[in-house]
């Protein structure tokens, strides 16, 4: 990995990390929701600092360039995040649906009184 890329990655993840913390302080983000993002930032920072480890792993795994390994890790991370959000949206959907049903049943009960 080139020095420039490492510097950009470190700066980028640091900004993201502190944005996360700031949002939590402003109570706009729940702690449990932001932990995953902070973990992602930390992984990126660690990968930029210990780039020789990344290089060693990528050679062992047969990557053409170490940076490809970094990208793959990030894509994997994002896919997991997306799946988690997909599940969360489904759960919310279920809850809204149950609420919807509850209102309809209540309304019917009131009308038949």
């Amino acid at each position: 990995m080139t020095i420039t890329l490492r510097v950009i990655l470190i700066i980028g993840s640091l900004i993201a990390f502190f944005l996360c913390v700031k949002r939590i302080k402003q109570a706009k983000l729940k702690v449990s929701n932001s932990v995953m993002w902070m973990v992602g930032c930390l992984i990126l920072i660690l990968m930029s600092i210990f780039s020789n480890v990344v290089e060693w792993i990528s050679v062992k795994l047969g990557f053409i360039a170490p940076v490809n390994f970094v990208f793959l890790t990030m894509i994997g991370f994002l896919l997991i995040q997306m799946f988690i959000y997909n599940i969360r949206i489904s759960e919310l959907n279920e809850k809204i649906k149950d609420l919807n049903h509850y209102i309809a049943l209540k309304e019917n009960e009131e009308r038949n009184k």
Partner: peptide, 24 residues
């Protein structure tokens, strides 16, 4: 005799509501 849903949720939800009513 009507169950009126405040949000449109599709046929599956509608049938499930009917089933809940039948069960109750």
């Amino acid at each position: 005799n009507m169950l009126s849903l405040p949000i449109n949720f599709g046929l599956t939800s509608g049938i499930q509501l009917g089933m809940k009513y039948a069960y109750k």
